Computed example of a mutant assay.
Amino acid sequence: MYNYFKKVFLVVIIVANGIVLNAQDYKQQDEILGTWISENKDLKVEIYKKEDKYFGKIIWFLCDPKTPNMSDFKDTENPEPKLRHRPWLGMEVVEGLMFNGDNIWGNGTIYDPNTGRTYSSVVTLKDNNTLVVRGYWGIELLGKNMIFYRVVPSGK
């Protein structure tokens, strides 16, 4: 009888531990949500969640002095002609990221409106306020990193 209770107790501990770990993973997976500004301070992206995937849209960028209004920038380099008139402002540029654990989100894409190219993407939360976004074509080794910093709302 003692062995039975010992086994039941062990199962309860294992299940409870799994629930705690899943709750921690669930909290951790949403750590990239929010507004981020590029290292060069020329682009702000809002990361948000749809169902179980993460997306990002442009919410601000530094304009060319010749074209001072963000609303005047269009997706002119897009390979699909029907999309060439959509504005950069509000454009979804990060799509379909999935939480892989250990502060890594992958299996997504990142779109560069400057070139009209879409790259595979992996995002790493280096620390609470630093996001490393890697865009690559083919293999991750042949990619480029972009650093973003969390924009902390005033009053926090």
Rank of each mutant, 00 (worst) to 15 (best):
F55A: 06
K66L: 13
I47R: 02
I59S: 03
F61P: 03
I58N: 04
K66M: 10
P81L: 07
V45H: 07
Y48R: 01
L43D: 05
P68N: 09
Y48D: 03
I59F: 00
D52Q: 13
C63K: 08
I47G: 00
L62S: 12
C63N: 14
G56L: 11
Y48F: 15
N78H: 00
T67N: 09
W60Y: 10
G56C: 06
I47Y: 10
D64W: 11
Y54G: 02
D52Y: 09
L43F: 05
K57D: 08
E46S: 10
D64I: 04
N69M: 10
P81R: 03
K74C: 08
N78L: 02
K50F: 08
K57C: 08
K50M: 08
K49Y: 04
F61Y: 00
T67L: 07
N69L: 12
F55Y: 15
M70Q: 14
W60I: 03
D75G: 06
T76H: 06
P65M: 06
P81I: 15
K74S: 11
E80N: 15
V45C: 11
N69G: 12
P81Y: 05
F55R: 06
F61H: 02
W60Q: 01
Y54W: 00
I47P: 05
F61A: 00
K44E: 15
K66E: 14
K74M: 07
Y48L: 04
E46T: 10
K44F: 11
I58G: 05
E46M: 10
D52P: 05
L43A: 13
P81A: 12
F73T: 02
W60H: 03
L43P: 15
K66P: 06
K57V: 09
P81S: 15
K53M: 13
N78A: 04
E46C: 05
D64S: 04
K57R: 15
I47F: 13
P65V: 00
V45I: 15
C63Q: 13
W60K: 00
K53I: 13
P81C: 09
K44W: 09
E80G: 03
S71H: 05
I58Y: 08
P79Y: 01
K57A: 12
K53W: 04
G56M: 06
D75C: 02
D64Q: 09
K66G: 08
F61M: 05
P65S: 13
F55L: 10
S71C: 01
D72R: 06
D75V: 12
M70G: 02
V45Y: 08
T67F: 05
E77I: 01
